[in-house]
Design a protein around this nucleic acid. Sequence first.
DNA 1: ATACACCTTGGAGTTAACTCCAGGTCAAGA
DNA 2: TCTTGACCTGGAGTTAACTCCAAGGTGTAT
Lengths: 148, 148
Amino acid sequence: MYYILNKMKVVIFVTIKEVCEKYDITPDTLRYYERVGVIPEVSRTAGGIRNYSEADIKWVENAICMRSAGVPVEMIIEYVKLFMMGDSTFEARCNLLKEARAEVEAVKKKYDDELKRLTYKISKYEEAMKTGVLNWDDEAREECLKNE
Amino acid sequence: MYYILNKMKVVIFVTIKEVCEKYDITPDTLRYYERVGVIPEVSRTAGGIRNYSEADIKWVENAICMRSAGVPVEMIIEYVKLFMMGDSTFEARCNLLKEARAEVEAVKKKYDDELKRLTYKISKYEEAMKTGVLNWDDEAREECLKNE
DNA sequence: ATACACCTTGGAGTTAACTCCAGGTCAAGA
DNA sequence: TCTTGACCTGGAGTTAACTCCAAGGTGTAT
């Protein structure tokens, strides 16, 4: 929400819609994030309408980044809670982030392996579309089944 | 299910439990995969008990690989259906795999970016635990928010 | 022959993460 | 002031992917 004064944009407040357009998410999702604590409570206008500050927006970015890498909502909530408790939680927050990173790394590895497998299969299909015969040796299966 | 004859393992049939133990999944999941078509119908004993052939097991492996990389069940079902229709679906199958690969690649990129972001944050926390002061510039936020 | 572990099916229940809705409030333009 | 569109809350509904359950059948071991 803003008006133009002497060709300058004067922002009155930053609505939920504006934030949603910026990050391509829905207002429902953003309100849900706030309700459950994935982001801290957002500042409001006198009338009770959300007015996103710079800090609020950084929390939104944090939530989106983490979620897009599959970090569970519960974990982000835990991080926000610790953050709110102040500097005494540096270590706990650090450990939480390390845990998240380990998880993201593990899944990323699966993705890398499956990417190889898919590429191998696709190459075999491209061959098959020329020769009319499809056959693959099973070497490509190995990688993504090592689950320990 | 097997017995030992002259120190040799004579397999009578391969039960669902054995397959599950091999891949660390539950019988319920495996039966679910079969029911919805993520894997083709598994061969049975006279009494109706599943007896996994080599081919059946390869389908199980396929399902597990794809799912672990986040390929949706619906897409795997589609692939299996096309496979069952024979050689005339080479191209359709190839396109499906390419679509799956594009999707896996896109998500993998998000994971890579978030991995960097997490590592950056963790380093800042490790610093903060020594100095008592936490501060990060916002450079680390950029990457994983480029969504197009 | 009976016990016992494991198997079967169909259908209902669970979980995470949204997503939608009703009924009401707020605020910018005519 | 009135209208209109965006916003609010609390709570219910949806979706994907399992996960569990009851009631009954299978098959090897004693």
